[in-house]
Amino acid sequence: MSRAGLKSSRAGLLVRYIVLVVLSVFFLLPFWIMIRNAFSDRAWITAAQWHWLPNQVNGRTLRSLFADDNLAMARTMVNSGIQSVGQTVLTVFVALLAGYAFARFNHRVARALLGLTLFTLMVPAAVTFVPSFVMTSQLGWIDSFRGLIIPTLFSAFATYLFRQHFLGFPQELEDAALIDGANQWTSFWRVVVPNSMGIIGAVGTITFIGAWNAFLWPLLVTREDTRTVQVTLSRFMTSQGVKYPELFAGALVATMPVVVVFLFLQRYLVKGVESSGID
């Protein structure tokens, strides 16, 4: 299994590539099914004979999807966009500052606060959704972007990842800036942040994907005004008389932004995970 072990046999390498190709087909299959369904008509999808190819490759389903006022697909996409971008920017900002402080300060207060942070890693927000919902409705934030974004943006995971990164960040760079007369704030923004774009990209990507795909919290706090695309699709799926083509066209449209972000920022994600050392 090791590099040394497999170098020897060419047959072994061939088998390995065959396995990889077969597995990739399996992994990509669900995406293909989504595309097939989005570009087929209902009769084709629900036929007893399974079809691998679509039969209606045109924009008809997409047009009817966006024309459906009940669904408000365009509106719901905009809502999801506001929510995910807002949550990503704020989460990264807040966690970056805190992660930096936790890496550079090690007095009793800092250790106690870090302990509180690490505890919430084990008890994630989803587990405490009942009290968080109570809090949010007390604040009058139901069906508002504040209610959608703010309660979920204090991420212990992001803070922890940043802290791990900054523990390995050379402090000499900051000291040099401080000697040149910068204060902590300017040295942070001028020296530390520009040299940490990799991990910022990684945490940003993870946060964006998580926010765009979030379901439980939006299900609880959104109503007509701020409903996100995941909640809309879920309601559409369980409504009476499922419209298969439109439903999967909606899924395709909802998956696109996050797949694009993912493909462009994937290398940051991989690099960030590698350098932060989650272990």
Binding site: F27, A254, F262
Partner: peptide
């Protein structure tokens, strides 16, 4: 290819 399902939401995966 193995990593990209991470970008899919549980809602949409459940749908498929």
């Amino acid at each position: 290819a193995f990593f990209i399902p991470t970008a899919c939401s549980y809602v949409i995966a459940a749908m498929i």
